[in-house]
């Protein structure tokens, strides 16, 4: 059974050593997903697997058989950019842009976790039915995505604006 990447079928690699990240970049030429540290420390390679944010550098592509991958190329649509992409532009949430695809994929997954009520380390009441996406929550939840340009303030502002808009 193949996997689906941004809605299109993709064959599994014959060599099980191939990471999902290398399959995306080297075989499928989807260069939006970035290779930063290649060891799970930076978050630049973040993609969505069945809607959940994961690190493609530590995922073997063969483990994705029958599953659905969304990369930064798959977030927008015919009608234009994904609202989070628009928010990143609006809030100057990047300088060099290298971490940006991972930041945006991570934020999409994070927003879904918030809607589902997944707590974080800074959530005071674990039994609370809902969690407000305040800046402390957003910073903790986005700590797996590093930005060496230091654009974190813009990144959090963009995500906060998006979460506020999505809640309306």
């Amino acid at each position: 059974m193949p996997m689906r990447i941004n809605g299109a079928e993709a064959a599994l690699p014959p060599d099980p050593r191939v990471s999902l990240l290398d399959l995306l970049r080297e075989t499928l030429h989807l260069h939006g997903t970035k290779k930063g540290c290649n060891q799970g420390a930076c978050g630049a390679c973040t993609v969505l697997l069945d809607g959940e944010r994961i690190l493609s550098c530590l995922t073997l592509a063969v483990q994705c058989e029958g599953r659905s991958v969304t990369t930064i190329e798959g977030l927008g649509g015919e009608q234009g950019l994904h609202p989070l992409q628009e928010a990143f532009i609006e809030h100057d949430a990047f300088q060099c842009g290298y971490c940006t695809p991972g930041q945006i994929c991570s934020a999409v997954g994070m927003a879904a976790e918030l809607r589902r009520g997944v707590p974080s380390l800074v959530t005071a009441d674990l039994d609370a039915p809902g969690i407000a996406p305040d800046p402390a929550e957003l910073r903790e939840r986005m700590s797996g995505n590093l930005c060496r340009c230091g654009s974190h303030n813009g990144i959090i502002a963009a995500i906060a604006a998006h979460c506020a808009g999505a809640a309306e």
């Binding site: 799970g40 973040t46 944010r53 997954g109 380390l121 939840r141 700590s143 797996g144």
Partner: peptide, 10 residues
């Protein structure tokens, strides 16, 4: 929740 990052916990 104190361990790793959200991506890794997923």
């Amino acid at each position: 929740l104190a361990g790793a990052s959200a991506q890794i916990r997923n």
